[in-house]
Structures are given as C-alpha cells and as structure tokens.
C-alpha cells in the first residue's frame, strides 16, 4: 500500500535535469493518507559478533501522531513511536521512554525515523542533510545527520526504492547496521 502511494506521489514529481533529489520533491510525496498499515522485515547487523539478527512484523501509523511497530518474530513486542520517543506497549505498560532530555542522540534518531515513516519532511529538514539521485523509476536518497551529537549514534540513513520506498538502511556510528524492508 505504501508502495502504491509513494509511486503515485513520485509520478507527480517534476524531476530536474541532473536527477538530484530535494526536500521540496520529497515534500510533494507527502500527500499520504492520515492512516496507513503494512508489514516489515528488519535485519540488524552486529559488527562485534559479525552476525545478523532478523525480526519481522507489522506496522501502522497515524500521521503526525504515532507509529505502532509490532514485532512478531522472534519475540513478540509492540512499540509505539511518537515524536517524543519510543515506548513498549506490552500489557499497556511503558517500559522505555526515550525523551530528549535524557538521551538527545537516541531521541534525534527516533525523531528522524518517525519523520521518515510518517513523511514529515519539514521535521527532517532541520535534522539531516539530503543527497541522492533519481533515475527514472529508481531513486536513492542519503540522509546525514546535521547534529554532531546525533552523528555519534548514526552516520547516515539510506532510503531506496524502485519507484517506491522499499528499503531503509541505518548505518550506526559503531559499525552496526539496521536494514528495514517495507512491504
């Protein structure tokens, strides 16, 4: 579903000659519905042990408010992301609250992911530098943190798709890497 919407939005974009991508182009993709749902597969590569951990589940979101991220395999967990942070919704209890005051770097990362998934480009603009290219149906965008503090946690986020957003790759500063494939 997200694929279809992104495609529709991307088709409306007027690409410039060099094929470079801009926030205003991305902003035009944001004609998305208030609510949306889909599934994901996530792979986390841990450099220290040279191994990858895979998890999968479903997600849905309400634009500007929250993303529900439900992990089904290998553990069951339901996370709620809001602009303020991430909380574990198990038994309705909050296990973890990321707030900006306590851990600004992680909070910045949370904000970026939240903006990414709910296509809030305005919020992204103040946090990251955008580069990338568009070539027909294939596009690739790289987001690099402007904030040095956030830069201590992650180096860059790669977004890519063939006409639609398929993949998010988050490169952590420590060498770990998280790849999320959306369906």
């Amino acid at each position: 579903m997200i694929r279809r919407l992104l495609l529709a939005a991307l088709l409306m974009l007027s690409f410039n000659a060099s094929g470079e991508i801009s926030f205003s182009q991305l902003a035009q993709i944001t004609g998305m519905p208030q609510k949306h749902a889909g599934s994901f597969v996530q792979q986390k590569y841990l450099q220290a042990v040279d191994a990858s951990l895979e998890s999968s589940g479903v997600f849905d979101y309400e634009r500007g408010k929250s993303i529900r991220w439900e992990i089904l395999e290998p553990i069951r967990s339901e996370l709620l992301m809001t602009p303020d942070g991430v909380s574990d919704q198990r038994n309705g209890e909050q296990l973890l609250q990321l707030d900006a005051g306590a851990n600004p770097a992680a909070a910045a990362l949370g904000e970026i992911l939240f903006a990414l998934l709910t296509a809030d480009w305005e919020m992204l603009e103040s946090h990251v530098e955008l580069s990338g290219s568009v070539d027909g149906e294939n596009w690739h965008a790289v987001l690099e943190p402007l904030d040095q503090t956030a830069g201590l946690v992650f180096k860059r986020v790669e977004l890519s798709g063939s006409g639609l957003l398929e993949k998010i790759v988050l490169h952590e500063s420590g060498g770990d890497r998280t790849t999320i494939v959306l369906e």
Binding site: S77, L96, A105, A106, G110, L113, V153, S173
Partner: peptide
C-alpha cells in the same frame, strides 16, 4: 524486564545508542 529491554534494543527499529553485545 532487563532481558526484554536488551532484546528490544536488538530487534526494535530504534536502538538507544551504541550497544555492545559482548561488552
């Protein structure tokens, strides 16, 4: 609770920072 927190850091989309699985 602590174990679960550790797992969430590994399987969630947002890890709270540079986690070291060995250290």
């Amino acid at each position: 609770t602590i174990s679960r927190q550790a797992l969430l850091n590994l399987f969630g989309p947002v890890s709270a920072g540079a986690n070291s699985i060995i250290d």
